[in-house]
């Protein structure tokens, strides 16, 4: 879940989709602005994508990470 502080939804979405490890990115309605789906081999990889990569995109304010159980 990615919260932004910019109206440039297309640019942020494309930046998300272009990241290594991100397989899907969507603009969503609600309290957050984007959902990015990540496939990772281990928790360290998730951290690398969520913290190091996504947070550095200009206009991203914060992220929340959920791990799928099925």
């Amino acid at each position: 879940m990615v919260k932004a502080n910019t109206g440039e939804a297309d640019r942020v979405k494309e930046s998300l989709a272009a990241l290594d490890g991100v397989v899907e990115a969507h603009v969503v309605a609600g309290d957050v602005d984007f959902v990015a789906k990540t496939v990772a081999d281990d928790p360290g990889d998730v951290k690398r994508v969520a913290t190091n990569a996504i947070q550095t995109i200009n206009g991203v304010e914060g992220t929340q990470t959920y791990i799928a159980m099925d």
């Binding site: 932004a4 502080n5 910019t6 109206g7 939804a9 603009v27 309605a29 602005d33």
Partner: peptide, 13 residues
């Protein structure tokens, strides 16, 4: 609830 969302909802919703 936040002004930056105005354009996003106008475009996508």
């Amino acid at each position: 609830d936040e002004d930056y969302r105005e354009g996003i909802y106008q475009k996508y919703a």
